[in-house]
Nucleic acid binder design. Structure first.
Length: 254
DNA sequence: ATGGTGGGATCCCCA
């Protein structure tokens, strides 16, 4: 089973790339973030590619979706017990796996209100992740976590030291979910240098491979037992009119 | 310290 997470930075602006990706790679499940549109504006032409779509959108900002070749059941929008005016979390059960698409707040600047919101969001995600583990299911939480877990996930750790995406409290918040029992699929299956998943639009960051690994796929123990391969589709970042994030893939044996 | 690139909105915000 092939599951991919991708921050598309506007699903309408990226529609040709999303369609090409579905055609070329045939994922069973595609987890999208940053739709930047309401549900009514979501391009349901994607259903013509053979995908069921569960959409949690909003105007202009955020927005997450789950696309699956299989029936989508038990849809949950928003993190339970967390008041959030933004559409940043959707979860559902499909083809024997519970999947979630999450768009963690960016945080803007250390100690800003946005940063506190990010930490609160992480706490809520951690609480829910602990609940999910009690289900004893194959679970894959994929998304843009807006955290580079270690300096190995950053092209220039000195430049990024204590900057948002790399600060200690964010890294602790991410690591807490891992220590609760989720496996970072890319880290687990990578020997040697870590692949980056996001490259800033500015200053030709992609051309000089100035990236960070901030998009992740977290696996419950039952999913981790089935971990087969992972891939970062970095060529997508090099296309004309690319998202600033590359699609990140995991395949499970079954 | 400034401003740089892109998307979507609106006369600027967020990343």
């Amino acid at each position: 089973m092939k599951i991919v997470t991708w921050n598309v930075n506007s699903v309408r602006a990226r529609l040709p790339h999303v369609e090409d990706f579905l055609k070329d790679h045939q994922p069973d499940v595609l987890l999208l973030q940053e739709l930047k549109c309401e549900k009514y504006a979501f391009p349901l032409s994607l259903e013509e590619f053979g995908y069921n779509c569960a959409v949690f959108g909003q105007k202009t900002y955020n927005g997450v979706a789950i696309l699956s070749k299989y029936p989508i059941e038990d849809v949950q929008m928003g993190i339970p017990n967390f008041e959030d005016g933004s559409s940043r979390y959707i979860e559902a059960f499909t083809n024997g796996v519970r999947v979630a698409s999450v768009y963690v707040p960016n945080g803007q600047e250390i100690d800003s209100a946005a940063y506190m919101y990010k930490l609160n969001f992480f706490q809520a995600l951690y609480n829910h992740a602990q609940y999910l583990l009690t289900l004893d299911e194959q679970i894959v939480i994929g998304g843009d976590f807006n955290v580079a877990p270690t300096d190995d996930d950053v092209y220039n750790p000195v430049l990024w030291k204590n900057q948002v995406l790399c600060s200690t409290r964010e890294r602790e918040a991410f690591r807490k979910i891992v220590y609760a029992g989720f496996t970072d699929a890319i880290a687990q299956s990578t020997q040697g240098p870590m692949p980056y998943t996001w490259w800033n639009y500015r200053q030709g960051a992609f051309a000089k491979d100035g990236g960070l690994r901030i998009d992740h796929l977290l696996l419950s123990p039952q999913a981790a037992d089935s971990l087969n391969t992972t891939t970062v589709h970095r060529y997508m970042r090099g296309l004309e009119k690319a998202s600033d994030h590359a699609p990140v893939e995991v395949t499970l044996k079954n």
